[in-house]
Design a protein around this nucleic acid. Structure first.
Lengths: 194, 194
DNA sequence: CGAAAATTTGACATGACTCAACTGGAGTGG
DNA sequence: CCACTCCAGTTGAGTCATGTCAAATTTTCG
């Protein structure tokens, strides 16, 4: 009862719950703090959980056979993060998740998710809509990757994540955009000089 | 009652329904046939519907400001297709959908979708899982675009869609992979000759 | 068959990559 | 407080993959 109701007031702030439902929610989540530079997940590990970012910044990245890193996603406040392919299939991760800025997370297992879905269909609605938005934004990114130059994608990026540049390294952005750090450096130089 | 129950035996073949539910389902969908080369959707149109592909082949593509086409998605049997960004937001399309091979579709509006979700939470479950798979496959594609060469992406493509090559034009594949038709032609030549 | 569309080929241009060297801070320890 | 190191970022020179433009060839289909 007196346990941490943060989950309800942050993650599900737009929904309302009975006492019983609230308790189920609170029991399903676990709060955790993660320091900068730590790894939340490594490739090869079994993925049981997904995480809600209450504070901080993380990134998901894939290491290709040639050793190069590719940033798949950044997660800031109010985003969810996991290796979703592995999470959905209850299998092992092919990606790493790194904490870029000290973070506060709420963790929930797939099993508990399914229980929540059964108990409260409107939670499933909430996540279906989340997925729809994520789907749309991934699609947008695919189009951007197909149709835009590296410079355009960079401008796009700093528009989409206006405040992120203070936190993340250049090579994080480069590996998100699909260019080398050298190229990104040249792109910026070009933009400054006009 | 004696109306077309195909929907239930094709789209939702893994679920079971009461008579009443079946009727609601049947009423929600509309069957349509679409000839090759016709457009199911054009950029600028309001998107009310999504479509289940019972037969045939379609593609969603985006036309960039420079006039170039970029294929976002192919849809074959048992896939769903729409301009999802617009569908989810009930807004206007930024993409076109073209029929590549004579197709049979089942169409459902967003409004009717929402009614189905309310009436049958397991339908919402079904679509949430669909979304999850689509999300995972988009993510895979983003990684592929970031980490693989054009040749690797092509090999990947013909693996993922083994039978599609008979149906689709070369330039459809090229615009899906993010290369020019000339480059794709050279890639194939290289592969044949070793 | 013949026109239009699709694909291939050639010559050349260019954006991005690689490798290597250099610069500039941030932090550390004597 | 300064020297040292480490890491991120920048710059330069050369290379390579892919794009562009134009022409030739093949395929499709009325």
């Amino acid at each position: 009862m007196t346990r941490d109701l943060e989950i309800i007031t942050t993650i599900f702030k737009d929904l309302s719950f009975t006492q019983e439902e609230s308790q189920l929610l609170v029991r399903s989540f676990e709060k955790l703090h993660l320091p900068k530079h730590s790894l939340l997940l490594e490739a090869g590990q079994h993925v049981y959980d997904q995480y809600y970012v209450a504070e901080g910044c993380l990134r998901t990245y894939y290491i290709a056979p040639d050793g190069k890193e590719h940033t798949v996603q950044f997660a800031i406040q109010d985003w969810w993060i996991s290796d979703y392919t592995a999470f959905f299939n209850s299998s092992t991760a092919s990606m790493h998740i790194e904490c870029i800025q000290d973070a506060t997370l709420f963790k929930i297992s797939k099993v508990d998710m399914e229980l929540l879905y059964k108990a409260m269909p409107r939670i499933e609605s909430y996540f279906r809509k989340k997925m729809e938005r994520a789907f749309a934004s991934f699609q947008k990114r695919i189009i951007a990757n197909l149709s835009q130059s590296a410079t355009e994608r960079y401008l796009n990026f700093i528009n989409t994540y206006p405040n992120i540049e203070q936190n993340v390294k250049n090579y994080h952005i480069a590996s998100y955009l699909g260019v080398t750090t050298q190229s990104l450096s040249r792109i910026r130089k070009e933009l400054v000089q006009g």
